[in-house]
Design a protein around this nucleic acid. Structure first.
Length: 374
DNA sequence: AAACCTGGCAACCGCGAGACA
DNA sequence: GTGTCTCGCGGTTGCCAGGTT
């Protein structure tokens, strides 16, 4: 059986609202509220409008304290960060921005923010392209050298084909979303996600468990996966500590992986690309320039391009070793309302890491590897 | 000045979830 | 358990103002 129409389509008015209609709806809503039944409301107040239309008009336009346009840089950042974390969950994003409606944010994203981001990405891609070209030239030079060495082949050469340079390692890094095909569908899921990302909620009953939980079944992964996860968790435990602070008041101390609380040296930061299977391609690693490190938007832009973002030391990359064992040094109490401070992290990753690495949170699909600085 | 194009935004549509009989 | 109804959400459409040709 089909769904019954919510209203008599033939007798309802469509299109823009007149000032009179607005005034009627507003007056009624301010006095009585919707009464929990939007469908019956238009008839009650003599409006030839669909109940859904009334609801929309009230929520998006007539409701008190609605802000239109003039999005601030801070709001931009929140929207971008949240979009990167949870996708097009406009109502949730709107809940973090007082006075903004989901419709407003959705429109703003579609018409401006997305383009703004794409523009920056294009710029970034150009830079990356020139780097790849340079790296290709370098590789060709290396190969030329190898060929030259082959020509002067030493005695005892073991028939190895000199043209086959050793394959560069491809280190698998499990992707949160890959391992969690059941995508986030509700606040509980998001809460779980945030817990998995290192947060805890003040009303959680198990307060004894302060350590980070693996977002995937890590025992079934390879040892190298486990090592990378452990590295990530070291970061996340640091994150837990950081998240108890207001994001605008970061401590000036550093965080290293050995104790999760503080260190003094700055980690080296890299970025790279994932392959089709979301595996980290070490051969595409690139150490971040200072400019990139301080580019507030680099992290999430790069993630959008299908890349990952992390920090590690050259040593870690070479031997795949984990950072020192970390323990959560401070409990982080994160309420649902504190989601803001969490989601800021995607932006903070690049903008703050070198001076305050503990302010790192890993959104789904974003890989972070942390190791002691050399 | 007129036609055309483009971007921004309000409003609509269809669907899923949850409440209720 | 099933069907109906409402709400809320995200995607899409279409109008309109301003810019360009």
């Amino acid at each position: 059986m089909g769904r019954a129409p919510c209203c008599d389509k033939a007798n309802v008015k469509k299109g823009p609202w007149s000032p009179e209609e607005d005034a009627t709806l507003k007056a009624y809503m301010e006095k009585h509220g919707s009464g929990g039944n939007w469908i019956a409301l238009p008839q009650k107040i003599g409006l030839r409008r669909c109940g859904k239309s009334c609801r929309l008009r009230w929520l998006n336009y007539l409701r008190p304290n609605i802000k239109h346009g003039g999005f601030s840089e801070e709001e931009d950042n929140i929207i971008c960060s949240l979009y990167m974390s949870i996708g097009s969950r406009w109502s949730i994003i709107a809940a973090q921005l007082p006075g903004r409606t989901d419709n407003d944010i959705k429109n703003y994203w579609n018409t401006r923010l997305k383009k703004k981001l794409l523009g920056r990405q294009r710029k970034q891609q150009q830079v990356q392209q020139s780097r790849r070209t340079a790296s290709f030239k370098q590789e060709m030079n290396k190969r030329s050298e190898n060929i030259a060495n082959f020509i002067n082949i030493p005695a005892g050469f073991d028939n190895q084909n000199p043209y086959d340079l050793p394959e560069l390692p491809v280190v698998p890094v499990a992707n949160y979303q890959t391992h969690n095909p059941q995508l986030i569908k509700d606040q509980a899921s998001i809460k779980n996600m945030l817990i998995n990302l290192g947060g805890r909620f003040s009303h959680d009953s198990d307060t004894s468990n302060t350590s980070f939980q693996y977002p995937i079944d890590i025992l079934s992964t390879s040892s190298s996966d486990q090592q990378f996860y452990q590295s990530s968790i070291n970061v996340l435990n640091c994150t837990s500590a950081a998240n108890s602070n207001n994001y605008s008041q970061f401590p000036s101390t550093h965080c290293d992986a050995s104790n999760g609380t503080g260190g003094s040296s700055s980690p080296t930061m890299f970025h790279g690309l994932n392959d089709q299977n979301n595996n980290l391609q070490v051969d595409h690693l690139h150490q971040l320039t200072e400019l990139e490190v301080y580019d507030n938007n680099f992290a999430y832009q790069h993630q959008q391009l299908g890349g990952f973002y992390y920090q590690a030391t050259t040593e870690t990359l070479n031997n795949g070793s984990t950072a020192g064992t970390s323990t959560a040094s401070a409990e982080s109490e994160i309420s649902w309302g504190d989601i803001n401070s969490l989601v800021y992290s995607t932006q903070m990753v690049a903008g703050y890491e070198t001076s305050c690495p503990q302010a790192v949170t890993v959104p789904p699909g974003l890989h972070t590897v942390f190791a002691e600085s050399t």
